[in-house]
Design a protein around this nucleic acid. Structure first.
Length: 424
RNA sequence: GGAGAGAUGGCAGAGUGGUCGAUCGCGGCGGUCUUGAAAACCGUUGUACUGUGAGGUACCGGGGGUUCGAAUCCCUCUCUCUCCGCCA
């Protein structure tokens, strides 16, 4: 969330920039400023009275010590009214405080200046593309048919065990999964990321910290007996490592990489275009997360994009990088690049990564700060993350793009040391 | 799962109703000394909110209560440790 201080001091800026996300924030912003004003006023009054109370209490203590009991008892009677007033003001303060909070969390993050205008995914801007779209045999098959032919992913079996969207990977399918995970992790570690293996169940505080709660709880599976949530992305546990943390400036940037399974309920979004591996309830993903100095975060965003680009290049997949327009960006993001690979039998672009700079929007929720070396002041850090990469659609594209006329599939050379086979 | 103990500032560890935001030590920072470093000595050292400012307020795991006054008493929740049981 944005800081109230920033909103108050930059009212116009907030409103004009949010217009790019097609949000008319004027009413909300003014409401925040007005409520915050009341909040502060209640705080000041309460503090003053509390100060009187503290002074009086000390005096009473002194009187007792000196044996002036009657005087002390007289003073006590004066505290009754004070106490009542303080209670009322404190309650008012708490109410205003909660109100301000409830309002502020409704404001999306401000889009960066470079974010294109636009409302729909069609208005995203292709910043660059690479790789070559392969010429497939006339009898080309979509991946769900290839999968069936080789019996490497079993959707029906997954449905038996759990339900739709929880496939069972079998044989070379399972090994391909494992190969990709290891490949992505190794590449990340080679680029200087620090590997972590977080829990895949998180508590409410963590869900709130990265913004999945309270609004998007329908997105996550909920283990109600313990009030834990299954993570929709490793972003949640990995970023929350830095919740309520004050880092040293010299520790920045923090660069973490993690593999986790991810769980998404995707309620209501089932339907066309979700066949096969295109959309699942459980899938594997390697995620990169950075905590950065505000002056460096955009530079770092580009290095993350470059890292992801390196991965799709090494896998030989045709790809394009999109800069998301204001209307297609997430609530929390200031600038997002999406990576799409071309799945040549479906003849569709599939999103396989989303790399974002959240600036201090998440950090403010998380209270993730660093101590500025010069001033020794604590400053909100910038958080960034990106998929590097999400597996199922990569697998879909690999299978489709590398198929031969007989339905056999060539494994990209770089993966062979990981899979132990070069053909499916 | 059973029994017990505990949660205090970066760490270690005092403090059981009244100038306690909190003793002392270590660590950190600044300084003296030194060619430099170490040692020694002196000083300093939490966070947040609020006020133009001096300052004020809050925070001793979380929440609630008793009291003129709570780190200290009561209730409750969470977590940690030790022993036993079970277990990949």
């Amino acid at each position: 969330m944005l800081t109230v201080k920033y909103i108050t001091e930059n009212r116009e800026d907030v409103i004009t920039r949010l217009a790019k996300k097609h949000v008319d924030a004027a009413t909300l912003v003014d409401n925040i400023i007005a409520t915050d004003e009341k909040r502060r006023s209640a705080k000041v009054q309460a503090d003053q009275l509390q100060n009187e109370m503290n002074t009086l209490s000390k005096a009473i203590g002194q009187m007792y010590k000196e044996g002036r009991k009657e005087e002390a008892d007289a003073a006590k009677s004066r505290t009754v009214e004070l106490k009542e007033d303080i209670k009322n003001l404190t309650t008012a303060f708490a109410e205003y405080d909660a109100a301000v909070n409830a309002l502020v969390v409704q404001l999306p993050n401000l889009p960066h200046d470079s974010v294109p205008f636009g409302r729909t995914p069609e208005e995203n801007v292709v910043v660059r593309s690479g790789g070559e779209i392969p010429q497939l045999p006339d009898n080309k098959q979509p991946h769900w048919d290839l999968i069936k032919q080789h019996d490497i992913v079993d959707f029906e079996l997954g449905t038996k065990l759990t339900g739709a969207g929880f496939p069972v990977y079998k044989g070379k399918g399972a090994r391909l999964q494992r190969a990709l995970i290891n490949f992505f992790l190794d590449e990340g570690v080679k680029s200087g990321y620090f590997e972590v293996q977080p829990p895949i169940l998180v508590n409410e505080d963590s869900g709130f910290g990265t913004g999945q709660l309270p609004d998007k709880e329908g997105q996550m599976y909920h283990a109600t007996a313990d009030n834990f949530y299954l993570i929709p992305t490793a972003e949640v546990p990995v970023t929350n490592i830095y919740r309520d943390v004050v880092l040293e400036e010299s520790e920045l940037p923090i660069r973490n990489i993690a593999y986790t399974p991810c769980f998404r309920r995707e309620a209501g979004s089932w339907g066309a275009h979700v066949r096969g591996l295109n959309r699942l309830h459980q899938f594997d993903k390697v995620e990169i997360v950075q905590i950065a100095h505000p002056d460096k975060s955009y530079e770092i965003l580009e290095t993350m994009v470059a890292h992801v680009e390196g991965l799709v290049n090494k896998l030989g997949l045709p790809y394009r990088i999109l800069r998301l327009c204001g209307g297609d960006m997430s609530f929390t993001s200031a600038l997002t690049y999406d990576f799409e690979v071309y799945s040549a039998a479906q003849e569709r672009w599939l999103e396989v990564s989303s790399v974002s700079n959240f600036e201090s929007f998440q950090a403010n929720r998380l209270k993730c700060r660093f101590r500025e070396k010069e001033s020794k002041k604590t400053v909100l850090a910038h958080t960034l993350n990106g998929s590097a990469l999400a597996l199922p659609r990569i697998v879909a594209a690999l299978l489709e793009n590398n198929q031969n006329a007989d339905g056999s599939i060539k494994i990209p050379e770089i993966l062979v040391p990981y899979t132990g086979f070069d053909t499916i």
